[in-house]
Simulated assay, not measured.
Amino acid sequence: MIFASDLDRTLIYSKKFVSNDEGIKLIETKGKEEISFMTKKAIKRLKKLSEEILFIPVTTRTIEQYRRISLFQEEIRPKYAIVSNGGNILINGEIDYEWNNIIQKKIKEECISFKEVESKFEEIESNQWVINRKVADNLFSYCIIHPEYVPEVLYSFIDWMEDNNWKVSLQGRKLYFVPCCVCKWEATQYIKMRENIDFVASAGDSLLDLPMLKMADYAVVPPHGEIYKKYERTYETIQNITFTEKEGIFAAEEILEKIYGLIKQPV
């Protein structure tokens, strides 16, 4: 069994989700800045889970950002990590260039260019709501924004992007522009075939996680983030997705409890 899970706002959480330090552990720093946390209970459950099944961290983070998470460099060392939203796979910490080359080829063949996306976005961009723009691992781009000032015209831009095989996802202060072929599920499926494993459980909170969640045999979503806001509870009835009762940093504990429960059932 594979457990492929998103990280930020699914298993790990920023300081704004931490109201009380009791039972919480710091798992990522950037210089002297404290970045991400998990509950000690969730860490204990994840350790136990990763000893029994193939746990794969799956994230939109760049390779560098993923490597900042001390938990996955010291306490839990996954064989695989899917980073760059599926554009890169790390095997025992090293880049799988065969997979990256496949994805780079697909971007050129199936999607409009970064330059075209940039040119179109410049038509609606202003310093009133866009703070800066970055390219991540030469696979997708994102902006740091003021979400409260996002203009209505952005939604027309999103429609144009979707017509040209790109996805747009707004997660807090980050606005992501991602080629459709740079996909968490495609990378998960590649590992699934490589390891010859049939059953995949997954967890995630954003629309960038949705293809992975829909294709998994079992999926868990916390009651916050883009998926919950878009579909709310009704989504349970049309997809193989379960929402947790807990939200915020404590949702991770419930997600891991539900996944661990699958091990004790025939799958």
Rank of each mutant, 00 (worst) to 15 (best):
I2L: 13
D6E: 04
L7N: 01
I12N: 08
K16E: 14
S19G: 15
E22P: 00
E28T: 11
T29A: 07
G31T: 10
E33W: 01
F37Y: 15
F37R: 08
A42W: 03
I43P: 08
I53C: 09
I56P: 01
V58F: 00
E64S: 10
E64C: 02
Q65S: 15
R68I: 04
Q73C: 01
Q73P: 00
E74V: 07
R77G: 00
P78N: 12
Y80V: 09
I91L: 07
D96W: 06
D96P: 11
E98Q: 09
N101S: 13
K106N: 07
K106V: 01
E110L: 12
C111L: 01
C111Y: 00
F114G: 09
F114C: 06
F114E: 09
E116C: 06
V117E: 05
E123W: 06
I124S: 10
I124T: 11
E125G: 03
Q128T: 14
N132W: 12
K134G: 11
F140M: 12
I144H: 07
E148R: 14
M161N: 08
D163Y: 02
L170K: 15
Y176D: 13
F177G: 07
F177R: 09
W185I: 08
Q189R: 14
D198Q: 13
G204N: 01
D209G: 04
L210Q: 01
L213F: 05
Y218N: 04
A219P: 09
V220G: 03
I227Q: 04
Y228L: 06
Y228P: 11
Y228S: 10
Y231C: 05
E232S: 14
E232R: 15
Y235T: 09
N240R: 15
I241C: 06
F243Y: 15
E247V: 07
F250D: 10
A252Y: 11
A252N: 12
E253S: 02
I255N: 02
L256P: 01
E257L: 08
E257W: 02
Y260W: 04
Q265G: 07
Q265D: 10
